[in-house]
Amino acid sequence: MKTTVSLLLALALPLTAAAQAPADTATTYKHQLGLTASPVLDGFFKNNRSLPLGLLYKRQLTPNKALRLRLVGQYSQADTANFQDTAPGFTRGYVTGPDQSRWGLQGFAGYEWQRFLSRKVGLAYGIEAGIGYERQRIASAFIEAYVIEGSVTTSREAITQNWQFQARPFVGLYYQPTSRLRLFVESAFAISYIRSRWERQSRSKFTKPNEADRFLQERAHTNRFAATLRPVQFIGATYAF
């Protein structure tokens, strides 16, 4: 009899431990909403002054499967202080610029699988696809002036526009300090089709005698495919509800 009881207790202990193990919070919370940031590893302190920031939403379908939506935006602007080099009878320098502005917006939709590796650490992997648009502008005005012969002021502007279609297999690790909060880091392999439009124009205005103003405009289109490994696609945090 004692042998039988001991055997039953031995069988019951693993079941009791399993029952006390933390349940996946996905069975309780169907939604996750959070923020992401995409740091650049190359030139970390120089190139991360204007990070792409994003919103992340997940809809839990089962305890270990979820649909996800992401919206990512970026904006940066740099204005250069003007300067002029002057000498007797001569002036040369920027009137404005060179100034640079850049902004972009991307949207993604994907499917994600999840599994806990320990009590608070988990693994997420899946695939997402998205589209995006980016615009970059560089502009300046430069003067070369001569007291006797007059001057020429050249204004330049270059605009680049990119339309992007992308697919990203991804894998990430998350840490769950509480039942609602998740902190995570994610890596991805991005496969992109990029259509670019480039336009540049330059206008020179003369005050020199017998010099006519000049105008130049150039345009070009390019299409290309790219494959990029992103060791850190983004870092972020979500809140479950």
Rank of each mutant, 00 (worst) to 15 (best):
E134P: 00
Q32H: 07
L8E: 07
S151L: 06
R70T: 02
A145C: 04
F83N: 03
R214G: 10
L7A: 09
F170N: 05
K65P: 01
A237R: 04
K205H: 08
G54I: 02
M1N: 08
P52F: 12
L55K: 04
L229A: 07
N64V: 11
A190V: 06
I191L: 13
F83D: 04
A17N: 13
E186T: 14
T153G: 10
G236L: 03
L71P: 00
E157H: 02
S155H: 13
E186L: 01
L69D: 00
L71N: 00
F215T: 01
K208F: 02
Q114A: 02
T25K: 12
T25S: 10
L216V: 10
Y94S: 11
I131Q: 02
Y75K: 14
A21V: 04
A141Y: 14
P22A: 04
K120D: 13
G73P: 09
T62G: 10
A23M: 10
G132W: 02
S76Q: 13
T96F: 05
G93R: 02
R195N: 15
G97W: 03
R92S: 12
E218P: 00
S202C: 00
T3G: 08
T160F: 14
A220F: 05
D79S: 05
G89S: 12
A190H: 03
L173D: 11
Y133M: 04
T222K: 03
L123Y: 10
F45R: 15
S179P: 07
L13M: 15
H221W: 14
S101H: 05
E186R: 04
A66D: 01
R59H: 14
S50L: 04
Q217C: 02
A17T: 09
I191K: 05
Y174D: 04
D99Q: 07
A227Q: 09
Q164Y: 03
E157N: 14
F165M: 00
E211M: 10
V72P: 03
R182H: 01
V171P: 03
P52S: 08
A87T: 11
L229M: 06
K65M: 06
K30C: 02
P98V: 14
D85Y: 05
P98C: 09
L8I: 15
R214S: 15
S140N: 15
E144C: 09
K30T: 01
A10N: 08
L41S: 12
Q161I: 08
E186H: 00
L69G: 12
Y57D: 03
A23W: 09
R102L: 09
G130Y: 11
A190T: 05
Q100H: 14
R195E: 13
L41W: 07
A12M: 05
L55T: 10
V40E: 14
L183Y: 08
E199N: 12
D42V: 12
R92G: 12
S155N: 13
E149H: 09
I191V: 11
F215A: 09
T25M: 07
L216T: 13
P39Q: 05
Q114L: 01
A220P: 03
R119T: 15
I138T: 15
G43P: 15
G43A: 03
Q106L: 02
V40Q: 11
L35G: 08
R115W: 04
